[in-house]
Design a protein around this nucleic acid. Sequence first.
RNA 1: GGUGCUGUAGUUAAGUUGGUUAUAACGCCGGCCUGUCACGCCGGAGGCCGCGGGUUCGAGUCCCGUCAGCACCG
Length: 374
Amino acid sequence: MSPVDLTIHAQSGAARTGVMKLTHGSVPFPAFMPVGTYGTVKAMLPRDIKEIGAELILSNAYHLWVRPGHKLIERMGGLHSFMGWDGAILTDSGGYQVFSLNQFTQISEEGVRFRAPLDGQYRTMTPEVCVEIQESLGVDIAMAFDECIEWPATRDRVAQSTARTTRWLKRCQAARTKMETTGLFGIVQGGMYQDFRVEHAQEISELDLDGYAVGGLSVGEPTEKLLETVAWTTPHLPADKICYLMGVGYPWDIVEAVIRGIDIFDCVIPTRNARNGKVFTSVGIINIKNARYAEDESGLDPNCSCLTCQNHSRAYLRHLFVSQEILGAHLLTRHNLHFYQQLMSKIRVAISEGSESLEKLRTEVNSWNRPYTT
RNA sequence: GGUGCUGUAGUUAAGUUGGUUAUAACGCCGGCCUGUCACGCCGGAGGCCGCGGGUUCGAGUCCCGUCAGCACCG
């Protein structure tokens, strides 16, 4: 039996809603995973993450491998126990770091040699190491080791890189030892080229993985390209498996991607932007550091029921940011993540209700993409 | 009362043997962030160089006076 057990409850066009049962709990989808790279969703307690409604979080195999080391975490009882989180965990492999840390990498068929910015040490990540790390961590879902490449990239570069990602995926599969508890997802690459995306999706669909991801997006391309690429890819992935869009995105990107067949998402935006003062609300985007909020007694979002909105004024939150008080980061992160979880909940309801409801939500969410005024 | 030190952006400071548009940090104002090297990054505004004279082609810089703060001596 697969560690990722999928039940689809309703569909509306390509969008679908249901529940995926994982080793550490059941996750309704479409779902958004808060990002906790280093074994912590920055500024959030595990119980806070639960409270705002997230059942599944994302962590990172590469970064935990560099520090404190996967073997140490295994000795501490695995990542769940180590970080005090009993919900589900998906780990990214380090494929994104091949892109984001490219100035410190050398790529070969064997794998990727990283010079860690943290300690200057050289380490080689291979598909085998990548699986070993994620199985040691004891996560619910492991991502295959891929190469996330830059945009734009030539056809020749994309073709070679994608072929290697496929070979690495097969090596990941062969290296598995905990098939009952840690699922493995394959990642579709292919750059922004339709034929490559279709071919790669079809090719890895035959490998019978526990789920599939669309990778290589949100690397600086325009939104239209991102959505176009998603639309090319999802029809060629197995309908009875989860489809994960990696690294996306803004609320409006998420709705558009769900409509194109995506089930789960992760993105640093709600957490990182919160720490930098940017807030998502149903009345537009707020930069809490702006002077205009200095004496604003209202809450962040008049339509939000999160703890931050129920208890604190914009004036106070701005003060916390201007004073660089740590509580500001927590309160804004909490709000943004709550906002995202509410969005996902609305999306699930809308899909069950049908296309009209989903279209209405789409219009509403796109209206959030504006600065707050008045 | 005397001597010395210090007065430069909102704040703290740099400023060569006098030489283009006086520099930085912090603060202030604004923008950015898509599988987190990220409580981060980028940009902007802001100066009668205490005040008044003088020397000089040219003074934040040298000279005289004066005011303020600090230290020490009477």
